[in-house]
Deep mutational scan, measured.
Amino acid sequence: NQASVVANQLIPINTALTLVMMRSEVVTPVGIPAEDIPRLVSMQVSRAVPLGTTLMPDMVKGYA
């Protein structure tokens, strides 16, 4: 089972991601792979992401 990136806190719209905002977790459906966490740092979210939400490619500007 592949771990995905999950929000560790509420991430407001247009916030630049930092390591403390993200954790890896095995979830369904699968989201952005956990190994991409270093690449996500400083990228902005395109919408508010609630705590515990799996990050999907369309939620991060410039990821897809």
Rank of each mutant, 00 (worst) to 15 (best):
L40S: 00
S42F: 13
A16M: 09
L55T: 01
I11N: 01
Q44V: 11
D36F: 11
V60M: 04
Q2T: 12
N1D: 15
V60Y: 01
T53S: 10
T54Y: 02
L17I: 14
G52H: 12
P33F: 13
V26L: 11
M22T: 01
P57D: 09
V30I: 14
T53V: 15
S46K: 15
E35D: 11
V27N: 03
N14C: 09
S24R: 09
I13M: 11
V6N: 01
M56G: 04
G62Q: 12
V30M: 14
L51M: 15
P57T: 10
G31T: 02
V27F: 03
S42D: 06
Y63R: 03
L40Q: 00
G31Q: 02
I11T: 02
I32V: 07
E25A: 15
S24D: 13
L40R: 01
I32A: 01
M56P: 01
T54F: 03
L51C: 05
I11Q: 01
A34E: 10
Q44W: 11
R47L: 08
I37S: 04
I13S: 09
M56E: 10
V60G: 01
I13Q: 11
S4H: 01
L51W: 14
G52N: 12
I11M: 04
N14F: 09
G31D: 01
N14H: 09
V60F: 05
N8H: 15
L19A: 08
Q9E: 11
V41R: 06
P12F: 07
S46Y: 14
A64Y: 04
L40I: 05
A34V: 12
D36I: 08
V5E: 01
P33G: 07
E25C: 06
N1Y: 15
R47E: 15
S46L: 15
Q9C: 06
L17K: 00
I32D: 00
S46D: 12
R39M: 11
V45R: 00
P38K: 13
M22W: 02
E25H: 07
P12G: 08
G62H: 14
L19P: 07
G31R: 02
P38L: 10
S4L: 02
A64M: 15
M22R: 00
V5D: 00
G62A: 09
M59L: 05
D36C: 06
L19D: 04
P33R: 10
V41L: 11
L40K: 00
D58E: 09
P57A: 12
R23Y: 05
E35C: 14
R23G: 05
G52E: 04
V60H: 00
A7V: 09
Q2L: 15
P57E: 12
M21A: 04
V26I: 08
L40A: 00
T28M: 08
N1G: 15
V20D: 13
V30G: 07
Q44A: 08
V60S: 01
V45K: 00
P12Q: 11
I37W: 03
N14K: 06
E35H: 12
A16N: 08
I13E: 14
V45F: 00
R47H: 13
S46E: 14
R47Y: 12
V20Q: 07
N8R: 09
V41I: 13
I32G: 00
D58P: 08
I32K: 00
P29Y: 05
V27M: 08
I11K: 00
M59K: 02
T15P: 02
V6E: 02
S24H: 09
G62V: 03
S46F: 12
